[in-house]
């Protein structure tokens, strides 16, 4: 039995999953590129239209802004949680860990629904404030960027916490102890010694949250109420309302290229292999 023969049998294990992924996933996604260049006419018309439309520009700017704010928010809040869980071990640590994992398992749809219940015109927050006599008329807490951002940060937070925790688990406390022993304050030791070591985890968390936020559909569509049109919702709008497959596909290509660029830029700073392929 040859070495080659051996290899063939391993590829036979790989083949079924790889084949259906290429035939039923990669090809359909590439098919969108074809539509973008061929419907309704062959050429780059759709991309010209896209570049000229101010609505498209607004939507792309909004998408990047929401994704950026969500990422920063998740990193700030997530860092505090990840730091506490990793550095102050006590009897509550398993509980804290469970509370981070729990929302992960509840569907995005349900979590967005909870925020609608809380932030709606006659939602729980408005009702409570009115009953307490703090406000006269309901505050506008959703169907705007504010509502979308709160819910997005809520949905994405675990994606930021988990990679940061994985990274912090591997950091030895010897350096911080040494810095403290040499007279650094707790804050100085954290900022100059501990924090720099956590940057790889922060970056992986940032990448994950940013990339997922760019293409997010469910939460912005539900909390935005048609007023916060991020690119994904803009695409479905073009296709479902106007049956404009050409422009919808061109926008999809634009979104794919934007995502790929983000990954490309990130790969200069982050080990993508450990951030994506060898997660957990």
């Amino acid at each position: 039995m040859g070495r080659l023969n051996e290899k063939v049998s391993y590829w036979m294990l790989v083949a079924p999953a790889l084949t259906i992924m290429i035939v039923f996933y990669i090809l359909p996604v590439l098919g969108i590129w074809e539509i973008a260049f061929t419907e309704p006419t062959t050429g780059v018309d759709n991309f010209v239209k896209m570049a000229e439309s101010s609505a498209v520009k607004t939507s792309f700017v909004l998408t990047f802004r929401v994704a950026a704010i969500t990422t920063v928010g998740c990193l700030l809040l997530g860092y505090i949680v990840a730091y506490s869980i990793s550095n102050f071990a006590n009897k509550f640590t398993p509980l804290m860990l469970a509370l981070v994992i729990l929302p992960f398992w509840v569907s995005v749809l349900i979590r967005s629904f909870s925020w609608i219940v809380l932030l709606g015109r006659s939602g729980l927050v408005n009702d409570t404030l009115r009953d307490a006599g703090i406000i006269e008329s309901p505050l506008r807490l959703m169907h705007n960027e504010f509502g979308v951002l709160i819910a997005m940060i809520h949905v994405m937070l675990p994606f930021a916490i988990l990679p940061m925790m994985t990274n912090m688990r591997g950091i030895s406390d010897a350096y911080v102890k040494a810095a403290r022993g040499l007279g650094a304050s707790e804050w100085t030791a954290f900022w100059n010694v501990y924090f720099p070591q956590t940057i790889p985890g922060v970056m992986s968390g940032a990448l994950l949250v940013f990339v997922l936020s760019l293409g997010f559909y469910v939460t912005p569509a539900l909390l935005g109420g048609g007023r916060v049109l991020m690119i994904s919702e803009y695409i479905t709008y073009q296709i479902q309302e106007f049956l404009n497959w050409g422009l919808g596909s061109a926008l999809s290509v634009g979104l794919l290229i934007a995502t790929a660029l983000v990954l490309l830029i990130a790969s200069r700073f982050i080990n993508l292999r450990s951030a994506l392929l060898e997660r957990k």
Partner: peptide, 14 residues
Amino acid sequence: LVPPVVQSLGFYRF
């Protein structure tokens, strides 16, 4: 990595 809406368009057409 592919945004859900983009892959769903692909699924739909195929």
